[in-house]
Amino acid sequence: MTETYTFNFMKEVSSLLHAADGNPFPMCVQCGSCSGSCPVAAYMDYTPRQIIAMVNAGLKDQVLNSNTFWYCASCYQCSVRCPQGISITELMYALQRYSIWKSRYQEGLIGPSFSEAFAKTIVNAGRTFEPILAPSYIFRFKLREFFLEVQNATELMLKGRLPLLPPRIKRLDNFKRMIRKIIPIGGLA
C-alpha cells in the first residue's frame, strides 16, 4: 500500500514535468546544497532538500499543505548548484501546478490566486495588466500591507508608471484559437 502510494505521488509529479524531461529528482543524495543556496529557505515550512525527500517518500499531504513551493522565487540558484543535475526550480513549478490542479493549498497563501489571476489575464488579452491592486488577491493582504501597496500604486500613478487601461494584442482571435489547440480550456477562459 505504502509502496504504491509513494510511487504514485512521485509519478504524478514527474508527469507534470513532461516538457522539461530528464529531471532526475529521485536521484537526490540529500546533500543540502539546494537549501544552503536558497535565499527563501528561512521562510519555508520545509527547505528544498526536505521537500524533495518528502516527494520521494510520497508524503503527499504534508507536501501539499506546505508553503515551500509557493515561496519559491524561481531564482534557479539551487538548480545550478545541485551535484545531481536536478532542477529543483522545475520541481517547485510542478508542485504549484499539481496544487492548483487539485485545488489544494495552504490556507491564506496569496501565491495561488495571484498565479491564477495572472494566467487568466494572459489567456484573455494576450498581455498582462500590471498586477498591482488586482482585486482577486489584494484582499488577502493584511491591512498595513494593503495601505503600503496603495501608497506605492498612487506614487506610480503620479509618475505615469501605471497603465490606465488593460492592454490587449491585436490578433486576439487567432491567439485564443491557438491556445484552444494546446489546452481545451475549461475554467481559465
Binding site: 507534470l16 516538457a19 524561481s74 501546478r97 492548483i100 494566467a119 494572459i122 494546446i182 489546452i183 481559465l188
Partner: peptide, 11 residues
Amino acid sequence: STTYFHIDELL
C-alpha cells in the same frame, strides 16, 4: 513571466 509556469507548462 515566472507565474505562468505555475499553471500549465505546455501553454
